[in-house]
């Protein structure tokens, strides 16, 4: 009788722990999904802004076909990318093309003063900031779930219910960022 109760109690505890771990994994997975949705909205927004940008710039930049084409091409590629890894690669290329574009814009003061262009630029800058800031939240969430999936004992539950590791959204550019000057004055 007593052993029966003990076995029952242990059984209940074990089931409780398993259910707890499973629920935690589900919650983390939803967090990752939610954080990714935040980035995805911004990426789409950036794709939507680019045709407008190119169209406005065309009128002023007659001799910069190549730069404009490379932006359009990079956008097309980024739109086709599906997985997180592919997307971070393609978006990085798009960022690079846009950077090159904004360097060229410096030579066209008329374009820079165009109200329409200024509006698109502001939206683009903001969208890029939003991508950068929501990337932090996404990568944090990925770190949490990947830890749970790899570590004992939650790795057993993760294996049983097919929880897969998530990919980080990386931007390699950060390594190229230069160090600002230190000023003690």
């Amino acid at each position: 009788m007593l052993t029966g109760i003990i076995i029952l109690v242990i059984f209940i505890i074990v089931v409780g722990v398993i259910v707890g771990m499973y629920n935690r994994l589900v919650r983390l997975r939803n967090q990752v999904k939610n954080a990714w949705a935040q980035i995805d909205v911004q990426l789409k927004r950036r794709h939507d802004l680019i045709p407008n940008l190119v169209e406005t710039a065309k009128g002023y930049m007659k001799h910069e076909r190549e730069t404009l084409d490379s932006v359009t091409q990079a956008r097309g590629k980024a739109q086709k990318a599906n997985t997180v890894g592919d997307k971070s690669q393609a978006e990085q290329e798009l960022s690079r093309a846009l950077n090159e574009f904004s360097l060229v814009v410096e030579n066209y003061p008329d374009l820079k003063a165009n109200v329409n262009f200024m509006q698109i630029q502001e939206e683009l800058t903001s969208t890029e900031n939003k991508i950068a800031f929501s990337r932090q939240a996404y990568n944090d969430a990925v770190l949490f779930i990947n830890n749970q999936i790899q570590m004992f004992p939650s790795n057993i539950i993760a294996g049983m219910f097919n929880f897969t590791q998530s990919e980080y959204f990386e931007i390699q550019d950060e390594k190229e960022r230069e160090v600002p000057k230190v000023n003690f004055s």
């Binding site: 502001e122 939206e123 903001s126 939003k130 800031f133 932090q136 939240a137």
Partner: peptide, 16 residues
């Protein structure tokens, strides 16, 4: 105030 609004929205994301 598009720029002000955008900036607030950015920080809202950063601060979660």
């Amino acid at each position: 105030q598009p720029m002000l609004y955008n900036v607030v929205e950015e920080i809202k994301l950063a601060a979660q």
